[in-house]
Amino acid sequence: MSKVGTASRHKSPWMIIVKRLSGNKMGMLGVLIIATLILIAIFAPLLEPYSFKAQDIGNMNQAPSGDHLLGTDEFGRDMLSRILRGARISFVVGVASVAISVVIGCIVGAIAGYYGGVVDLVLTSIADLTWSMPAILVALLLVAIIGPGLESVVLAIGLSYWSQYARLIRGQILSLKGSVFVEATRSLGASDFVILFKHLVPNSISPVIVAATIGVGNAIVLEATLGFLGMGAQPPTPSWGAMMSSGTAYLFISPWVIIFPGIAMMITVLGFNLFGDALVDIMDVKNRESNL
Protein backbone atom coordinates (compact mmCIF):
# COMPACT_ATOMS: atom_id res chain seq x y z
CA MET A 1 0.00 0.00 0.00
CA SER A 2 2.49 2.52 1.11
CA LYS A 3 4.94 0.90 -1.25
CA VAL A 4 2.77 1.68 -4.24
CA GLY A 5 2.67 5.27 -3.09
CA THR A 6 6.41 5.67 -2.94
CA ALA A 7 7.14 3.71 -6.09
CA SER A 8 4.78 5.71 -8.23
CA ARG A 9 5.35 9.13 -6.74
CA HIS A 10 7.39 10.35 -9.69
CA LYS A 11 5.14 9.00 -12.42
CA SER A 12 2.32 10.83 -14.12
CA PRO A 13 -1.24 9.81 -13.25
CA TRP A 14 -1.60 8.21 -16.67
CA MET A 15 1.41 6.02 -16.08
CA ILE A 16 -0.08 4.89 -12.79
CA ILE A 17 -3.36 3.99 -14.45
CA VAL A 18 -1.61 2.04 -17.20
CA LYS A 19 0.56 0.29 -14.64
CA ARG A 20 -2.36 -0.73 -12.45
CA LEU A 21 -4.41 -1.76 -15.46
CA SER A 22 -1.72 -4.15 -16.59
CA GLY A 23 -2.12 -5.95 -13.28
CA ASN A 24 -5.88 -6.34 -13.71
CA LYS A 25 -6.59 -9.49 -15.72
CA MET A 26 -10.23 -8.78 -16.48
CA GLY A 27 -9.40 -5.18 -17.40
CA MET A 28 -6.70 -6.36 -19.77
CA LEU A 29 -9.16 -8.74 -21.40
CA GLY A 30 -11.45 -5.75 -21.90
CA VAL A 31 -8.61 -3.74 -23.44
CA LEU A 32 -7.78 -6.65 -25.71
CA ILE A 33 -11.39 -6.95 -26.90
CA ILE A 34 -11.70 -3.22 -27.54
CA ALA A 35 -8.35 -3.08 -29.36
CA THR A 36 -9.39 -6.00 -31.57
CA LEU A 37 -12.68 -4.31 -32.27
CA ILE A 38 -10.94 -1.11 -33.30
CA LEU A 39 -8.57 -3.00 -35.59
CA ILE A 40 -11.48 -4.87 -37.17
CA ALA A 41 -13.38 -1.61 -37.59
CA ILE A 42 -10.41 -0.02 -39.38
CA PHE A 43 -9.37 -2.96 -41.53
CA ALA A 44 -12.77 -4.55 -42.13
CA PRO A 45 -12.58 -4.17 -45.94
CA LEU A 46 -9.27 -6.08 -45.98
CA LEU A 47 -10.46 -8.82 -43.64
CA GLU A 48 -13.74 -9.61 -45.35
CA PRO A 49 -13.62 -12.92 -47.23
CA TYR A 50 -16.48 -11.69 -49.48
CA SER A 51 -17.91 -8.29 -50.17
CA PHE A 52 -20.33 -7.51 -47.39
CA LYS A 53 -23.02 -6.57 -49.88
CA ALA A 54 -22.46 -9.16 -52.59
CA GLN A 55 -25.71 -11.09 -52.98
CA ASP A 56 -25.56 -14.69 -54.09
CA ILE A 57 -29.01 -15.95 -54.90
CA GLY A 58 -27.76 -19.51 -55.31
CA ASN A 59 -26.46 -19.56 -51.74
CA MET A 60 -29.27 -18.15 -49.63
CA ASN A 61 -29.60 -19.05 -45.96
CA GLN A 62 -26.61 -21.39 -46.03
CA ALA A 63 -25.56 -22.92 -42.73
CA PRO A 64 -22.00 -22.22 -41.59
CA SER A 65 -19.51 -24.18 -43.71
CA GLY A 66 -15.94 -24.02 -44.99
CA ASP A 67 -16.98 -21.53 -47.66
CA HIS A 68 -19.02 -19.33 -45.39
CA LEU A 69 -17.68 -19.71 -41.86
CA LEU A 70 -20.73 -18.09 -40.31
CA GLY A 71 -23.23 -18.98 -43.04
CA THR A 72 -25.16 -16.67 -45.35
CA ASP A 73 -28.27 -14.57 -44.95
CA GLU A 74 -31.51 -14.44 -46.89
CA PHE A 75 -29.80 -12.77 -49.85
CA GLY A 76 -26.87 -15.18 -49.82
CA ARG A 77 -24.55 -12.55 -48.35
CA ASP A 78 -21.63 -13.81 -46.28
CA MET A 79 -22.39 -13.32 -42.60
CA LEU A 80 -18.75 -13.15 -41.50
CA SER A 81 -18.06 -10.28 -43.86
CA ARG A 82 -21.19 -8.49 -42.73
CA ILE A 83 -20.39 -8.94 -39.06
CA LEU A 84 -16.85 -7.62 -39.56
CA ARG A 85 -18.23 -4.62 -41.38
CA GLY A 86 -20.86 -4.20 -38.67
CA ALA A 87 -18.12 -3.77 -36.06
CA ARG A 88 -17.36 -0.44 -37.70
CA ILE A 89 -20.94 0.75 -37.36
CA SER A 90 -21.37 -0.45 -33.80
CA PHE A 91 -18.14 1.17 -32.73
CA VAL A 92 -18.92 4.48 -34.40
CA VAL A 93 -22.49 4.52 -33.10
CA GLY A 94 -21.34 3.64 -29.59
CA VAL A 95 -18.57 6.21 -29.38
CA ALA A 96 -20.33 9.02 -31.23
CA SER A 97 -23.56 8.79 -29.28
CA VAL A 98 -21.74 8.62 -25.95
CA ALA A 99 -19.72 11.67 -27.03
CA ILE A 100 -22.98 13.54 -27.58
CA SER A 101 -24.35 12.41 -24.20
CA VAL A 102 -21.16 13.39 -22.42
CA VAL A 103 -21.01 16.85 -23.99
CA ILE A 104 -24.64 17.61 -23.20
CA GLY A 105 -24.35 16.05 -19.76
CA CYS A 106 -21.22 18.00 -18.91
CA ILE A 107 -22.68 21.31 -19.97
CA VAL A 108 -25.97 20.81 -18.15
CA GLY A 109 -24.39 19.26 -15.08
CA ALA A 110 -21.66 21.88 -14.83
CA ILE A 111 -24.07 24.79 -15.12
CA ALA A 112 -26.49 23.23 -12.63
CA GLY A 113 -23.76 22.50 -10.10
CA TYR A 114 -21.96 25.80 -10.49
CA TYR A 115 -24.85 28.23 -10.43
CA GLY A 116 -27.10 26.32 -8.03
CA GLY A 117 -30.43 27.81 -6.98
CA VAL A 118 -33.29 27.95 -9.44
CA VAL A 119 -31.04 27.09 -12.39
CA ASP A 120 -29.96 23.95 -10.60
CA LEU A 121 -33.51 23.06 -9.65
CA VAL A 122 -34.80 23.40 -13.20
CA LEU A 123 -31.90 21.56 -14.85
CA THR A 124 -31.88 18.80 -12.25
CA SER A 125 -35.61 18.28 -12.63
CA ILE A 126 -35.24 17.99 -16.40
CA ALA A 127 -32.38 15.56 -15.98
CA ASP A 128 -34.32 13.48 -13.45
CA LEU A 129 -37.32 13.45 -15.71
CA THR A 130 -35.28 12.22 -18.68
CA TRP A 131 -33.61 9.70 -16.43
CA SER A 132 -36.91 8.27 -15.28
CA MET A 133 -38.20 7.76 -18.82
CA PRO A 134 -36.93 4.49 -20.24
CA ALA A 135 -34.17 5.38 -22.71
CA ILE A 136 -35.64 3.12 -25.35
CA LEU A 137 -38.87 5.13 -25.37
CA VAL A 138 -37.08 8.45 -25.63
CA ALA A 139 -34.88 7.14 -28.41
CA LEU A 140 -37.85 5.68 -30.31
CA LEU A 141 -39.70 8.95 -30.17
CA LEU A 142 -36.64 10.93 -31.21
CA VAL A 143 -35.96 8.66 -34.19
CA ALA A 144 -39.58 9.09 -35.17
CA ILE A 145 -39.07 12.86 -35.07
CA ILE A 146 -35.73 13.03 -36.84
CA GLY A 147 -36.46 10.23 -39.26
CA PRO A 148 -34.76 6.84 -39.49
CA GLY A 149 -31.12 6.40 -40.44
CA LEU A 150 -27.80 5.93 -38.77
CA GLU A 151 -27.16 9.61 -37.97
CA SER A 152 -30.52 10.06 -36.31
CA VAL A 153 -29.96 6.89 -34.31
CA VAL A 154 -26.69 8.31 -33.02
CA LEU A 155 -28.35 11.60 -32.16
CA ALA A 156 -31.33 9.90 -30.53
CA ILE A 157 -29.18 7.66 -28.35
CA GLY A 158 -27.00 10.61 -27.45
CA LEU A 159 -30.04 12.59 -26.40
CA SER A 160 -31.51 9.73 -24.35
CA TYR A 161 -28.50 9.01 -22.16
CA TRP A 162 -27.11 12.43 -21.21
CA SER A 163 -28.77 12.73 -17.85
CA GLN A 164 -26.55 10.23 -16.02
CA TYR A 165 -23.45 12.25 -16.98
CA ALA A 166 -25.13 15.46 -15.90
CA ARG A 167 -25.77 13.93 -12.47
CA LEU A 168 -22.17 12.80 -12.14
CA ILE A 169 -20.64 16.13 -13.17
CA ARG A 170 -23.04 18.11 -11.02
CA GLY A 171 -22.08 16.11 -7.96
CA GLN A 172 -18.39 16.60 -8.62
CA ILE A 173 -18.72 20.32 -9.28
CA LEU A 174 -20.72 20.80 -6.10
CA SER A 175 -17.90 19.31 -4.06
CA LEU A 176 -15.20 21.27 -5.90
CA LYS A 177 -16.69 24.72 -6.28
CA GLY A 178 -16.09 25.84 -2.72
CA SER A 179 -12.39 25.00 -2.88
CA VAL A 180 -9.66 27.55 -2.30
CA PHE A 181 -8.39 26.92 -5.78
CA VAL A 182 -11.64 28.13 -7.36
CA GLU A 183 -11.68 31.23 -5.14
CA ALA A 184 -8.11 31.98 -6.16
CA THR A 185 -8.82 31.59 -9.85
CA ARG A 186 -11.83 33.84 -9.54
CA SER A 187 -9.91 36.52 -7.70
CA LEU A 188 -7.42 36.51 -10.56
CA GLY A 189 -10.32 37.66 -12.72
CA ALA A 190 -11.20 34.45 -14.52
CA SER A 191 -14.68 34.38 -15.99
CA ASP A 192 -17.26 31.81 -14.95
CA PHE A 193 -16.84 30.13 -18.29
CA VAL A 194 -13.10 29.73 -17.84
CA ILE A 195 -13.47 28.50 -14.27
CA LEU A 196 -16.13 26.02 -15.27
CA PHE A 197 -14.81 24.53 -18.45
CA LYS A 198 -11.07 24.99 -18.08
CA HIS A 199 -10.79 24.07 -14.42
CA LEU A 200 -13.82 22.49 -12.80
CA VAL A 201 -14.99 20.18 -15.58
CA PRO A 202 -11.55 18.73 -16.37
CA ASN A 203 -11.09 18.08 -12.66
CA SER A 204 -14.42 16.29 -12.39
CA ILE A 205 -14.15 14.16 -15.46
CA SER A 206 -12.82 10.83 -14.19
CA PRO A 207 -16.10 9.31 -13.00
CA VAL A 208 -17.60 10.48 -16.28
CA ILE A 209 -14.91 8.66 -18.25
CA VAL A 210 -15.63 5.49 -16.34
CA ALA A 211 -19.38 5.79 -16.85
CA ALA A 212 -18.86 6.64 -20.53
CA THR A 213 -16.80 3.51 -21.11
CA ILE A 214 -19.65 1.37 -19.90
CA GLY A 215 -22.06 3.72 -21.68
CA VAL A 216 -20.54 2.79 -25.06
CA GLY A 217 -21.70 -0.76 -24.40
CA ASN A 218 -25.20 0.41 -23.49
CA ALA A 219 -25.38 2.56 -26.62
CA ILE A 220 -24.42 -0.39 -28.82
CA VAL A 221 -27.19 -2.47 -27.26
CA LEU A 222 -29.71 0.33 -27.69
CA GLU A 223 -28.71 0.78 -31.34
CA ALA A 224 -29.36 -2.90 -31.93
CA THR A 225 -32.75 -2.70 -30.24
CA LEU A 226 -33.76 0.30 -32.33
CA GLY A 227 -32.54 -1.55 -35.41
CA PHE A 228 -34.57 -4.57 -34.41
CA LEU A 229 -37.70 -2.43 -34.01
CA GLY A 230 -37.15 -1.08 -37.52
CA MET A 231 -36.15 2.35 -36.23
CA GLY A 232 -32.40 1.99 -36.74
CA ALA A 233 -30.02 1.84 -39.64
CA GLN A 234 -31.94 0.85 -42.74
CA PRO A 235 -31.48 -2.53 -44.45
CA PRO A 236 -28.47 -2.44 -46.76
CA THR A 237 -26.38 -1.03 -43.90
CA PRO A 238 -24.67 -3.95 -42.16
CA SER A 239 -25.45 -2.91 -38.59
CA TRP A 240 -25.63 -5.80 -36.14
CA GLY A 241 -29.07 -4.71 -35.01
CA ALA A 242 -30.37 -4.45 -38.56
CA MET A 243 -28.93 -7.89 -39.38
CA MET A 244 -30.72 -9.43 -36.45
CA SER A 245 -33.88 -7.58 -37.35
CA SER A 246 -34.03 -8.91 -40.90
CA GLY A 247 -32.96 -12.33 -39.67
CA THR A 248 -35.96 -12.61 -37.36
CA ALA A 249 -38.19 -13.64 -40.24
CA TYR A 250 -35.89 -16.58 -40.92
CA LEU A 251 -35.36 -17.48 -37.27
CA PHE A 252 -36.34 -21.11 -37.78
CA ILE A 253 -34.64 -21.54 -41.16
CA SER A 254 -31.31 -19.84 -40.57
CA PRO A 255 -30.86 -19.05 -36.86
CA TRP A 256 -27.17 -18.23 -37.41
CA VAL A 257 -28.20 -14.92 -38.97
CA ILE A 258 -29.46 -13.95 -35.50
CA ILE A 259 -27.01 -15.84 -33.32
CA PHE A 260 -23.67 -14.62 -34.67
CA PRO A 261 -24.26 -10.86 -34.71
CA GLY A 262 -25.59 -11.26 -31.17
CA ILE A 263 -22.45 -13.04 -30.05
CA ALA A 264 -20.30 -10.38 -31.71
CA MET A 265 -22.24 -7.77 -29.80
CA MET A 266 -22.01 -9.73 -26.56
CA ILE A 267 -18.22 -9.88 -26.81
CA THR A 268 -17.95 -6.21 -27.73
CA VAL A 269 -20.16 -4.95 -24.93
CA LEU A 270 -18.44 -7.33 -22.51
CA GLY A 271 -15.14 -5.71 -23.51
CA PHE A 272 -16.39 -2.22 -22.67
CA ASN A 273 -17.89 -3.42 -19.41
CA LEU A 274 -14.75 -5.20 -18.26
CA PHE A 275 -12.62 -2.19 -19.15
CA GLY A 276 -15.02 0.14 -17.36
CA ASP A 277 -15.12 -2.09 -14.27
CA ALA A 278 -11.35 -2.16 -14.18
CA LEU A 279 -11.26 1.64 -14.44
CA VAL A 280 -13.61 1.87 -11.47
CA ASP A 281 -11.15 -0.13 -9.38
CA ILE A 282 -8.08 1.62 -10.69
CA MET A 283 -9.24 5.20 -10.55
CA ASP A 284 -10.94 4.49 -7.26
CA VAL A 285 -14.14 6.16 -8.33
CA LYS A 286 -16.39 6.36 -5.33
CA ASN A 287 -19.69 6.68 -7.12
CA ARG A 288 -21.31 3.26 -7.19
CA GLU A 289 -23.76 4.32 -9.87
CA SER A 290 -21.07 4.83 -12.44
CA ASN A 291 -20.10 1.26 -11.87
CA LEU A 292 -23.26 0.05 -13.48
Binding site: L222, T225, F228, L251, I258, G262, M265
Partner: peptide, 22 residues
Protein backbone atom coordinates in the same frame (compact mmCIF):
# COMPACT_ATOMS: atom_id res chain seq x y z
CA UNK B 1 -24.55 -11.45 -14.62
CA UNK B 2 -22.49 -9.67 -17.27
CA UNK B 3 -24.16 -11.62 -20.08
CA UNK B 4 -27.45 -10.27 -18.85
CA UNK B 5 -26.28 -6.69 -19.39
CA UNK B 6 -24.31 -7.21 -22.61
CA UNK B 7 -27.03 -8.43 -24.94
CA UNK B 8 -30.29 -6.81 -25.92
CA UNK B 9 -33.42 -8.37 -24.43
CA UNK B 10 -34.89 -9.09 -27.85
CA UNK B 11 -31.86 -11.19 -28.79
CA UNK B 12 -32.14 -13.15 -25.58
CA UNK B 13 -35.81 -13.64 -26.36
CA UNK B 14 -35.03 -15.01 -29.83
CA UNK B 15 -32.36 -17.34 -28.43
CA UNK B 16 -34.74 -18.53 -25.72
CA UNK B 17 -37.34 -19.29 -28.39
CA UNK B 18 -34.78 -21.27 -30.37
CA UNK B 19 -33.63 -23.21 -27.34
CA UNK B 20 -36.74 -23.78 -25.28
CA UNK B 21 -39.59 -23.57 -27.75
CA UNK B 22 -38.17 -24.93 -31.00
Amino acid sequence: ALLGVTVPAFWLGLILILAFSV
